[in-house]
Design a binder for these strands. Structure first.
Lengths: 164, 164
DNA sequence: GCTTCTCCTACCAAATTGGTAGGATTAAGC
DNA sequence: GCTTAATCCTACCAATTTGGTAGGAGAAGC
């Protein structure tokens, strides 16, 4: 498994926020019900997105979360990095420099193992796929799916799928 | 984490076999010592490679394992598939058709969720990176590393790194 | 018949994951 | 100023996965 439910739920959450017509805050409770996800768990996940400054929050009654940026400017590599901590193909990859790209701890003196060569290539593939996908694209995709299924009353978001 | 140590150790094992000048069988014990890996665990891993017909074995004294094919014709997507079972980006991806590519179980009636769209893209990136890497390439890489470090007596394989 | 191998299966400890519980704190609306 | 609806924060917990060990049983060379 590459990603955990943190990434799954976190991305769903962002897509829900992106689907919102205005940018008035949306409560987690509403999102949890919409997506059929456990509220308490979502709270911990959204905290990761907030720390990464991908969402903003308003506390108190009628509060909630909204996107901190335009969906066009949010790429999935940032998102997954915020949610999962890093994109490491292998346990020998230890957090090192910059944006989720991590280096192998096996050999430090310039030498490299053959497996590192392979995992770096894989990691590159993952990060590139993430980087070229924007939140806006996912929002558009999910909107299209809705239209294809049922003409919805405007602003009424139905759950994309219900596990419950 | 994308892959577990099964992939790591399994690939190392194959590289070791590929480094062998002749194709007389090599015992797991030798490989375990060379790479500093636990023998009993390696036994279980090599069983996966054998089931996938990537290695062949000879039992009994002076037995061991050898590659079943030319390293040029062994691509890493087969290898990782054999070792890890599948390359699923997310738990909702359930084993389905063909070569490790799996489909989302969330929605079955033609509809799709936005996250599935994303994970499919990521999965594609991983599989493509694996598919374009051959065992021969990794063997060549590891040989080059050796030369760069110390001129070795021929046929004497030093450990690439020692954890022990 | 010893030794050196592959092979097989059951067990096990540690870590991770996915989730719950319980409560502060903050702000809107009356 | 009370109530209510929210974000925030932290500790706990059960299930699963992971990485590995143990203990053998068969095969083949010497």
């Amino acid at each position: 498994m590459i990603f955990t439910t943190k990434a799954e739920y976190g991305v769903r959450l962002l897509v829900e926020l992106g689907r919102q017509p205005s940018d008035s805050p949306v409560s987690l409770k509403a999102i949890a019900e919409n997506e059929g996800l456990p509220l308490a768990y979502l709270e911990r996940i959204v905290a990761l997105l907030k720390r990464a400054e991908l969402v903003e929050s308003t506390r108190g009654a009628h509060g909630g979360y909204r996107l901190a940026r335009d969906p066009e400017n949010v790429t999935m590599d940032e998102v997954v990095l915020a949610l999962e901590g890093s994109v490491a193909p292998m346990s020998c990859f230890v957090d090192e420099t910059d944006d989720g790209r991590v280096l192998c701890s096996h050999v430090d003196d310039g030498e490299a193992c053959a497996t590192k060569f392979l995992w770096l290539r894989v990691q590159g593939g993952v990060i590139e796929a993430l980087r070229r996908t924007t939140l806006a694209e996912l929002v558009a995709f999910s909107a299209k799916q809705d239209v294809a299924k049922t003409p919805l009353p405007l602003g009424d978001a139905l759950p994309l799928h219900s596990n419950a």
